[in-house]
Design a protein around this nucleic acid. Sequence first.
RNA 1: GGCCCCAUCGUCUAGCCUGGUCUAGGACGCUAGGUUCUCAUCCUAGAAACUGGGGUUCGAAUCCCCAUGGGGUCACCA
Length: 625
Amino acid sequence: MPSPGPVITRFAPSPTGHLHIGGARSALFCWAFAQRAEMEHRARGGTAGGGGRFMIRIEDTDQARSSEESARGILEDLAWLGIEWDDGPRLDYEPFAQAKDGPAPPTLARGARRTIGAEARDVGSYFQAQRAAAGIYNAYIESLVKAGRAYPAFETPEQTEAMRREFVARKQTFKYPRPADVLPGVFNEARWARARKGDRHVVRFLMDADAVVVHDQVLGDVRIAPGEVDDFVIRKADGFPTYHFAVVIDDELMGVTHVLRAQEHLANTPRHVAMQRALTRLDTGEPFRHPVYAHMPLIFNMDGTKMSKRDKAKTARKAVKDAIAKDRSITVATLAPALGVAEKDLAGFIAADNDSIDIAAALAGRLNVNLPEIEVYDFRRNGYLPEAIINFIALLGWNPGMKLDDGKDLEKFDRDFLARHFAIDRIGKTNAKFDRAKLLSFNSDYIGKLSDAEFAARWRAFLAEYEPEALAALFRSPGGHAGATGIDRFALLASTIKPRAKTLRDGLTAARFALVADGGYEFDPKAMDKLRAGNGVDLLGQARQRLAGLGAPDWAPATVHTLLEQLARQLGLPEGNAGVGQLAQPLRVAVTGTAVSPGIAETLAILGRESTLTRIDRCLAAAAV
RNA sequence: GGCCCCAUCGUCUAGCCUGGUCUAGGACGCUAGGUUCUCAUCCUAGAAACUGGGGUUCGAAUCCCCAUGGGGUCACCA
């Protein structure tokens, strides 16, 4: 039996921004599908790369909107998620979140540089703009024109638009009317000559008259009646191929066997199938193949709207409007300079004339609001773990359909599991809503599952990347005093933060007490009232005296705890933790200003002797007023 | 509007293909308890769904039809 060749899947983003979370899922499924094929191939003793390959292709045919930075950003986002491609653009990068335990200076210790992707299969560039420059598409355009399956059209965009409006006015669906001189299967020499002369034109595909059936692995056969699809543009006036055309050419030339993509592309697929029927390879003379199609359900916001980066602008716009309404001193004139943007731009943003994400981000920082995460990068900088995101998005429109021993559904799994078990027949058909609450739950679960050392390393790497000042502050003893010797304050802090952090970022909230200076926090009035009401002040004084007797070198959770236990006993408080608890609350208020903190012994140990005593004294003074 | 796709708790979903084992299971969220020095973690319990109507069948969440609802798509964007 001839070897069937590898399964080849592809993810083909257009580089016009960061990687959208929905795109990440498409990439993940394509990756998993190829991975599984490769694994099974190797299990049968096959050679590496011969069973399944995952490819990235950059669809940068939109000259105006594409950028190299976006392309790189998307590749980095994929790398961060751990979705690595076998074929595609080369990415040299420094692995993320690899900071390990190290000496005090809070620098981000990057791992060794890595490279993903290589132009290994000799299929040319993975950038469509470069492929266009190499003449790949034009050669096929010409072959189609010569075969009478495509033709130049000379209407200007304005003319086409006018035609469209006429149709709409008559309540008809616009379909480009094929010119009378264009005949199927007949090379229109006159038009071609005029085009070659340099007249501005587009090239349209001459749609065939037969029905098109898309055999979709998820949705089943989808039949489109003849005449439903008009003669669409395959080459723009600027000489670049349209998406539809470039996709069909490249998928064939790059040997793509399986196309897994979002359902929004389903309606485009008949065009692709029709072109595949009409095209013949220029190198081998073989007809184009039809890849296997699988369209997956879409992902929406909880309110049913599309998840788009404009949501960020919307959120920021609402926030700034609220702020202006609430506080008269806030105006466009005062805000703009503070944000570092032009007044005109800010006014335009508020008026919804523009949706600048830069302004949205500046506003969010200024007004202290959280923008919705839409792109992978947003999740990353807000402290989500890639494994949580992978797991969560894998469940949007797919599930393994397996039960755990206790009868519950298996829903927590990693990339490797997905690679082993992913199958198209378990892709669902119904659109999903992106439930951030569940993602958050997944994220805190994954944080909880990390060992203390791992969490400390990853939290530290995260802070080094996105909150370097906070990290630096955590490495300083709050009051500038020498920290306890013999304990790693950061590790201790991290271990107490871990169960309290739903994201790496919000771990900072729980760590606030360790971040502020000894005199840098307010005492919560309610907590202070409570302190004064009972015998809190007295207990606090007693505790202070006792703690003062504990030398800085002994300042560790266990010793502090023992000391408090002993004190509780001496004061005739209830046995065990209940007694410690009566001491804990006043102490907690004293050293954090609030009634909430990690365990009191850990809290005090993290603060160290000098800070603790300083803070207690400050509280005692405040309570006496 | 034309064409196409879809339809189980608030949300993600299992079950549907191969009708009975479904008084429809799990997870998140929610509610109520419990553990704990506060908070968080953790544990237990509870409320919560087969869109509607016809049909097929001894029997339908599961098969068929219609209605309704939701979505996608109709660019010289991808």
